[in-house]
Nucleic acid binder design. Structure first.
Lengths: 157, 157
DNA sequence: ATTGACACTGATAATCATTTTCACTTTCAC
DNA sequence: GTGAAAGTGAAAATGATTATCAGTGTCAAT
């Protein structure tokens, strides 16, 4: 994690930007998360450390983290973006529990290969894709009668 | 298409709602489209027939069409929703050209099967999924040098 | 350490798609 | 035909994100 912070610093320096107190705080808070987090949720976490940092600065710093290749922005169709660490690991897709909001990552190269096959068939130059599986995770499956809608999302908020 | 209109009427009647002039006009205009269309774009089309129908009514009617199972709402990550006919045909996924905005539908049951396999592995109850391939369609691939960004989206607007 | 140029910050206002509100109008079952 | 209930349009509200702008902080060069 200090490694990621260093990479962020490097990016800022290289781009002629400044490593301010706010940016370091925000980046540190972001790297300290282990799941997908919204700007708002990150804001609340950062506010715990410094009450006067604005939500706007969170957005600006998340944008910088994306530019630095350290964060990915995801849209899971809930109206607001979630941010995840851009791990050096391979590309992955997501499974989203509509009960509790939990997000699980997975990768499947057979699916990837089939996607490329489809693209080829349409003479389509595939640049990137988005695959999301929605449903109930193991826990929510157990709690609901086939997901009768009694559970509300409480995940990454 | 008159068939779809009839189904819409039925849905309204069954739900104790009214088949107003506006709703019929909007539904007719929607069924007359053959691609994915935004509320705004549908509004412009309807305005051609009746200048005083409001955009709000378009949104409300599209919601009714969804409830009637006659329309699907799609979010292709461009900030606004696109609506497509809920054809009785099988489920399909989408390929979106980032050059011209063209949307192509495709289906691939091998991919579907693999998705279910993944879900099973995580004890996840799969309810629905979203698969979108982004890149350049045949035409845009030809027009750009590997998509240098010279073409702007002009699709369903 | 001082400085100065320029990037940064926070508050507030602006966007943009979509939804609510509300006073008035239309539909349709009787 | 009539009236209760639903529908309509205009304008205001929403909610996430972005832009504006005046004041502040950073850092490289002195």
């Amino acid at each position: 994690m200090p490694d990621k912070l260093r990479r962020f610093q490097q990016h800022l320096t290289r781009a002629g930007l400044k490593a301010t107190r706010q940016r370091q705080l925000i980046a540190r808070a972001f790297f300290a998360t282990n799941t997908h987090i919204s700007a708002e949720a990150l804001y609340r976490r950062v506010s715990g450390r410094d009450r006067r940092i604005g939500l706007v600065t969170i957005y600006r710093t998340l944008k910088l983290l994306k530019e630095a290749g350290l964060a990915h922005e995801r849209q899971f169709g809930e109206g607001r973006a979630l941010f995840e660490h851009a791990s050096s690991e391979r590309h992955h897709d997501h499974m989203i529990c509509t009960g509790c909001g939990k997000i699980t990552e997975f990768e499947n190269c057979k699916i990837e290969a089939l996607q490329e096959q489809v693209a080829r068939r349409f003479a389509f130059t595939l640049r990137y894709h988005k695959l999301e599986l929605y449903g109930f995770c193991r826990e929510c499956r157990a709690n609901t009668n086939r997901g009768a809608g009694r559970v509300r999302a409480v995940g990454a908020r």
